[in-house]
């Protein structure tokens, strides 16, 4: 009402000044639709996710929906903390959370079942099964499966044999490398043999070298391809003795990421034999877990989630606490230091 009154008063004033009332339109201040800034539309277009339609070929009737079956909604990270701790001295384990053994006790328990009077396998492998949370530093990113080699403080006989080719100059170094466990060690004469085709690189599992021979190795680079010794893969080091020892005596393990649940990874690796002292096995577990921890992504929370000790043929799985050997979470300083988190993960992968 006030508006119309004001409007009529305004027109009156205008007519008083002999102006055309139709000129009022120019006074109307509606929002003018300016074009969006140059970058805006391009940005919006870039933001739009391109939906790729993948053509699915014909699937026989009996094979349809197979991927749905294998996908399970149950998380593979088992958590039994909701179960109570036992108060009685005799109880069925089903109703309670798992017993957490010390590594020594777990080995002793396995020694019982593998005693000559029972399974009679006193030199059975002690296998560590470690489960991991494979989440990477960035959200919704996951680590890939990776392979590592770690040297354990107490070596034990294994089933597999490894062949190592070591390159170095000087008879002393060659002797050292041979003593440390290299299958073949040599200098320029060895390079010549490879060039002639007398020795095949493919016959060897690992190729290591001392830095003093690296210039002579360049001609056979094409033959070695990706196995050419370099610092990054840890096959080129001045301390050849320790290097060869690591490759000949270390355990190789592969952390596997689960196919359907990307944040679940696990590794099963022999870390000793039952005829070793339980303390030695515990030290091996410590070294192994510390090596595994070095592959940890720079993020908050747990990396190693669970650690079990197995020893076939016994079906027992005994849980041990991995956090007596390694830190549960990453310290804050380390997390803040790292700017190139993605690179660190890529290097370990």
């Amino acid at each position: 009402m006030a508006g119309t009154l004001f409007r009529s008063m305004f027109t009156n004033t205008l007519s008083f000044y002999k102006c055309n009332s139709s000129n009022l339109r120019s006074l109307h201040t509606a929002t003018v639709s300016y074009a969006a800034r140059k970058g805006t539309r391009a940005k919006a277009r870039a933001k739009k996710v391109k939906v790729e339609v993948t053509k699915v070929g014909f699937i026989p009737h009996n094979q349809r929906g197979k991927d749905k079956i294998s996908k399970s909604n149950v998380s593979k990270h088992l958590d039994d903390t909701f179960k109570p701790l036992a108060k009685d001295d005799v109880y069925p384990l089903k109703y309670y959370s798992w017993i957490v053994y010390t590594a020594e006790d777990a080995v002793k328990a396995h020694q019982q079942t593998h005693h000559p009077t029972m399974y009679n396998v006193p030199d059975a492998f002690v296998i560590a099964r470690v489960e991991m949370n494979m989440e990477a530093a960035k959200k919704n990113r996951f680590m890939d499966s990776f392979t590592r080699l770690s040297l354990l403080p107490h070596t034990f006989p294994r089933d597999e044999e490894r062949t190592i080719l070591a390159f170095c100059k000087g008879s002393e170094l060659i002797k050292e490398a041979m003593d440390a466990g290299a299958t073949t060690a040599g200098g320029t004469d060895l390079i010549k043999k490879i060039q002639d085709g007398q020795i095949k690189i493919g016959d060897y599992d690992y190729v290591v070298a001392h830095p003093n021979i690296i210039t002579e190795l360049v001609p056979i680079r094409g033959l070695m391809k990706r196995r050419f010794p370099n610092v990054r893969s840890g096959t080129l080091e001045p301390n050849l003795k320790d290097l060869v020892r690591k490759f000949s005596g270390g355990v190789q393990y592969r952390v596997l990421k689960d196919e359907h649940q990307e944040n679940f990874g696990f590794v099963e690796v022999p870390i000793g034999r039952l005829n070793m002292e339980p303390k030695q096995v515990a030290e091996n577990i410590e070294a192994f877990l510390k090596d595994l921890q070095s592959a940890r992504p720079k993020r908050d929370g747990l990396f190693i989630t669970r650690c079990l000790l197995l020893s076939p043929p016994s079906p027992e799985k005994l849980k041990i606490d991995p956090f007596v050997y390694v830190d549960k979470t990453l310290s804050k300083e380390v997390r803040e230091d790292s700017d190139d988190e993605g690179d660190a993960v890529a290097a370990t992968a």
Binding site: A86, D89, V90, Y91, P92, L93, K94, I99, A109, Q112, T113, T117, M118, S314, P315, E316
Partner: peptide, 18 residues
């Protein structure tokens, strides 16, 4: 101890003294 270990294998915790 044979029986105690067998109990443990089948999911029961039974100490030797029991």
């Amino acid at each position: 101890w044979h029986i105690s270990a067998s109990f443990r294998k089948s999911g029961f915790i039974v100490p030797e003294y029991a």
